[in-house]
């Protein structure tokens, strides 16, 4: 596999999830590692010919048929034009890159997934992987917050999983839109507040977090108060991973490179690094 050469992919579906976010499904070569062998939390580089390339976390489950699910917010130089793409349009992919969530270390543990905003994308991938081997893990809890109810992604899917008893789900929004009284399943509170009433066993719980940098410090201090040690807390960091292979020099966090050493780091690995959490 040549990690520098994007292989052809075709956009097979673009499903708008919110006003600015879509679930994009791509199809590439069957059995290619870029689609078939990644860990949740890893990322790929998606090219839109003529516009450029950007790093994006996997949002789905590995497939042998070459299909890849990605959750994309259309706010960037490449993701903007991607918004007007139609099924059949050409794209290209490289990956998988980086380190994902440590599934092996999670065996036998209770798992607490915490997602803020678009951070649900890699955690959906993690959740799907965990559910595929449900018997390997203890409790599965997902705390998920967004700005407002209209920005919550995959709610139907998540509520369905909750109803089937597959996951303990708590949703929250920062504020309610004027027209809503608020759906019954959703609280109005900042994401870290959900931790206040959480009943967990710190010695057998691992936390997997992805969200905007602004929520990390508060989440981390709350989890520490609950008794979780730093090696039980994993965070996915966002940086400008332009090449994905440790060469372009943009994505260092301290002296670690997000693209090859991350983007998922344990809190212990980030100790003492100024600005690591945003």
């Amino acid at each position: 596999m040549n990690r520098d050469l994007p292989i052809p992919a075709v956009i097979s579906a673009i499903r708008p999830l919110t006003v600015d976010t879509s679930l994009v499904t791509l199809n590439t070569e069957p059995h290619h590692p870029v689609a078939s062998s990644f860990l949740p939390g890893q990322f790929l580089e998606l090219s839109l010919p003529g516009a450029g390339e950007f790093p994006v976390s996997y949002c789905g489950f590995p497939s042998v048929d070459g299909s890849i699910e990605l959750c994309i917010r259309h706010i960037g130089h490449v993701t903007g034009p991607l918004r007007t793409a139609v099924p059949g349009d050409a794209a290209a992919v490289r990956g998988p890159f980086g380190h994902g969530f440590p599934l092996l270390a999670y065996v036998g543990q209770d798992l607490l997934l915490i997602a803020g905003g678009l951070g649900i994308a890699p955690l959906r991938s993690l959740l799907l992987a965990l559910l595929a081997q449900r018997e390997l893990w203890g409790r599965l809890t997902l705390l998920y917050g967004a700005r407002e109810t209209g920005a919550l992604l995959f709610t139907d899917e998540l509520l369905e999983l909750q109803n089937r008893g597959m996951v303990e789900l708590q949703l929250t929004v920062d504020h309610l839109e004027h027209c809503f009284d608020g759906p019954p399943y959703c609280r109005v509170a900042l994401l870290p507040v959900l931790l206040d009433q959480l009943d967990l066993e710190p010695d057998r719980t691992c936390a997997a977090i992805c969200g905007p940098p602004v929520v990390y410090p508060l989440l981390v201090s709350r989890l520490r108060q609950l008794g979780l040690s730093d090696d039980r807390i994993h965070l996915s960091l966002e940086r400008r991973m332009k090449c994905g292979v440790g060469r372009c020099g943009h994505c260092a966090v301290g002296t670690r490179l997000c693209c090859v050493d991350g983007p998922v780091f344990s809190l212990a690995e980030l100790a003492g690094i100024e600005g690591a959490l945003g």
């Binding site: 950007f54 917010r73 130089h77 993701t79 940098p213 940086r239 020099g249 670690r256 600005g275 945003g278």
Partner: peptide
């Protein structure tokens, strides 16, 4: 994308440069 800058201040960028030159990355 979206405009977040992880090294908004030039001072932070000097620290970055320092790390790379004297401590090494990855």
């Amino acid at each position: 994308a979206g405009g977040t800058n992880f090294r908004k201040e030039r001072a932070e960028r000097f620290l970055y440069r320092y790390r790379h030159k004297y401590r090494g990355f990855g």
